[in-house]
């Protein structure tokens, strides 16, 4: 029975199937909203599904110069780690694997999809992929610094109240804190960290203006240049899942709380909040900006978002 329960968690909710639908619909909503902002009609909301299933049916071409097993395995590894993360993010008070939800684990697991993109791209042997992965690497280094500091600030804030003044890295403790004291966002010392995290999302998922790694017009989608068919479909799915999981993590960190107690409603509320976060941080910025250069991106992330999250950390440390 227990095994069945865990299998349900892993494959249906909040694991694979839930993420699959939630992520692809979220990606569709994002595309639709951007199109409307740019006065286009835009694709139907279900377009990412059509894209995904079409790619699944296409022939997979693996170039001769590729390290073949790595080439196929890399996207799957990325997907696995994304599904794994989805199990650890609490949806209000519900979480599938309560004991292991830990912020630092999630930081590291979140780098695995990026690493899988890099490894897959580099295994293809294409020089365009070489350029792409170098940019992807710089983008990891860029967003990781503000992300870490913001997460530490959240951990400290929650830990001071519910963990005897010690820091906590446990996501369920962070949720517990929010159910006692209201969402993190309503504590004014956390607002800078909140803003910093809003900036981190588009870079983490790789959307404009931070999609330097996959710049289509310059380097032909960089790491994805040699991909086709099944693995390309998995990468597109990874992109959609990343949007969903990262916005969900964001909601858990800043907007969580008691919830209604009924999982279905909680999941729905979480999802609506995710959509709002994505519209704010991904769609809005994507609709109005053009792509940055590599060194501009690093400079941007290591100044403004970092400064904001440091400000939060200092405020929290002072007990405000």
């Amino acid at each position: 029975m227990l095994i069945l329960k865990y299998l349900f968690y892993i494959f249906v909710f909040p694991g694979f199937l839930f993420c699959f639908f939630a992520g692809l619909i979220l990606a569709g909503i994002d595309r639709k909203i951007v199109a409307r902002m740019q006065k286009r009609i835009g694709p139907p909301i279900l377009q990412p599904f059509y894209d995904f299933f079409k790619l699944m049916g296409k022939e997979t071409i693996i170039p001769n110069s590729a390290a073949k097993r790595t080439f196929i395995a890399a996207p799957v590894a990325g997907l696995i780690s994304l599904v794994t993360i989805s199990l650890f993010i609490p949806i209000f008070k519900f979480s599938a694997f309560n004991a292991v939800a830990d912020v630092i684990v999630i930081i590291y697991l979140l780098t695995i999809p990026a690493v899988s993109l890099i490894i897959g791209g580099s295994s293809s042997g294409s020089p365009y992929a070489g350029v792409g992965i170098s940019r992807e690497m710089v983008s990891i280094v860029s967003y990781e610094l503000p992300l870490i500091i913001a997460l530490l600030a959240v951990g400290k804030k929650a830990g001071m109240a519910v963990n005897d003044g010690m820091v906590t890295f446990s996501l369920s403790k962070i949720v517990e804190y929010q159910s006692l004291k209201g969402p993190m966002l309503f504590h004014w010392s956390m607002i800078p960290a909140f803003l910093a995290m809003l900036f981190v999302i588009p870079c983490e998922v790789g959307s404009l203006p931070f999609d330097i790694a996959e710049a289509e017009v310059e380097i032909c989608e960089g790491p994805l240049v040699e991909y086709s068919g099944f693995p390309l479909g998995i990468y597109k799915l990874n992109y959609a899942l990343k949007i969903f999981i990262f916005s969900s993590l964001f909601v858990t960190l800043f907007l969580s709380g008691n919830g209604t107690g009924i999982i279905l409603f909680d999941a729905a509320i979480q999802y609506v909040l995710c959509i709002i976060v994505v519209i704010l941080s991904v769609s809005l910025i994507r609709a109005v900006t053009a792509r940055l250069r590599v060194e501009q991106m690093l400079k941007f992330y290591w100044t403004y978002p970092t400064a904001l999250s440091i400000l939060s950390l200092i405020l929290v440390w002072l007990g405000l």
Partner: peptide
């Protein structure tokens, strides 16, 4: 099954990308 080089022959390709940490 060849690698894509924007229609150029690979030996004339101008895509470098050797320096991974330029930024």
């Amino acid at each position: 099954y060849d690698t894509f080089y924007s229609g150029e022959k690979s030996e004339y390709s101008q895509v470098g990308g050797a320096d991974l940490f330029w930024g």
